[in-house]
């Protein structure tokens, strides 16, 4: 391969990788905040994302709602829906004092329900394309080229992350969320309402998933199975250590860039395998993930 082509591929791979990676990063964030504060690996994350895309599609293409109303309406609806799921279903399952696997099963239940609902509407039968409000056209950065839509996705995702990190680190409610992630009993002791925080975190994770869905949907053909992409978000979360928020973001970008570079340099058929090779490498050399901290010895 010539040097020029090599450099072009490298730049394009990284640029496109940042775009898809930002979506993985958002979804990984949604998974990690829920896991940290409620100890639940949310296996319905992919379907929350999928259902959000369909809800936005329904509002825009079927109800003909203006884009600028449909987007906040979708995000808000998913926020409420996810909060209610935590409040109504998960607290009941937890109160039944079963094994913690019950909570995971409950999220699997939610994923089937959401898929079922989307299929029942009939919109999920054939692949649909999501209307894009971005103009056609692209920008060249170095030798890489990104469409306006790509830039919007990357920019919006980064902005959401920035707001999110600010909230998590500098607001009272953010501190409460972090405290709950560290020690639940101590959190209640200092006066944090555990129930409210956990509900709010589920709501936020839903809102983030909805934003990710709306951003990426115009680039995809929507189907009821589009939620499988969340496997890559789980991969991103694992690479980042599964409890670290910066880790989730970095993990998302690593997965996105790896996929694109492998697609360009190796073969597009190798794309699906690449993220899992990365997971294996990370887990072999850094079993705690990149941001998971040191292996801690627990007293028994």
């Amino acid at each position: 391969m010539e040097l020029e082509v090599l450099s072009l591929f490298l730049q394009q791979g990284i640029a496109s990788g940042l775009v898809t990676g930002s979506i993985y990063a958002l979804l990984a964030l949604a998974i990690v905040i829920v896991f940290r504060t409620t100890d639940v690996a949310n296996f319905a994350e992919g379907e929350v994302y999928m259902a959000s895309a369909y809800l936005a599609f329904f509002l825009i293409a079927i109800v003909s709602m203006p884009f600028w109303i449909a987007v906040p309406a979708t995000v808000f609806a998913v926020l409420i829906g996810a909060s209610l799921f935590q409040r109504v279903v998960l607290t009941q399952v937890a109160a039944a004092k079963g094994v913690s696997v019950n909570l995971v099963i409950a999220t699997l239940g939610l994923s089937y329900v959401l898929k079922g609902i989307v299929r029942a509407t009939g919109f999920g039968d054939t692949p649909r394309s999501f209307p894009s409000v971005m103009g056609e056209g692209s920008v060249t950065l170095g030798s890489a080229s990104l469409t306006y839509l790509d830039l919007t996705i990357l920019g919006a995702a980064l902005a959401i992350m920035a707001v999110f990190f600010w909230m998590f680190n500098y607001t009272k409610i953010g501190r409460a969320m972090r405290a709950v992630g560290m020690n639940r009993r101590a959190s209640q002791l200092v006066g944090i309402n555990l129930g409210h925080v956990q509900m709010l975190v589920w709501g936020l994770s839903g809102a983030i998933s909805a934003v990710a869905a709306i951003l990426i949907a115009p680039k995809l053909l929507m189907t009821a199975d589009m939620g499988v992409v969340v496997t890559l978000a789980f991969a991103a979360a694992i690479i980042g250590g599964f409890t670290s928020l910066p880790g989730a973001v970095v993990g998302g970008f690593i997965i996105g860039i790896t996929e694109n570079l492998v697609g360009l340099f190796v073969s597009s058929r190798a794309i699906n395998v690449a993220p899992f090779v990365v997971i294996m490498l990370v887990l072999i050399f850094m079993p705690q993930g990149l941001f998971g901290g040191k292996v801690r010895v627990r007293k028994v």
Partner: peptide
Amino acid sequence: LKSHSMAG
């Protein structure tokens, strides 16, 4: 009362 309301 709930546990978290004792601090207040």
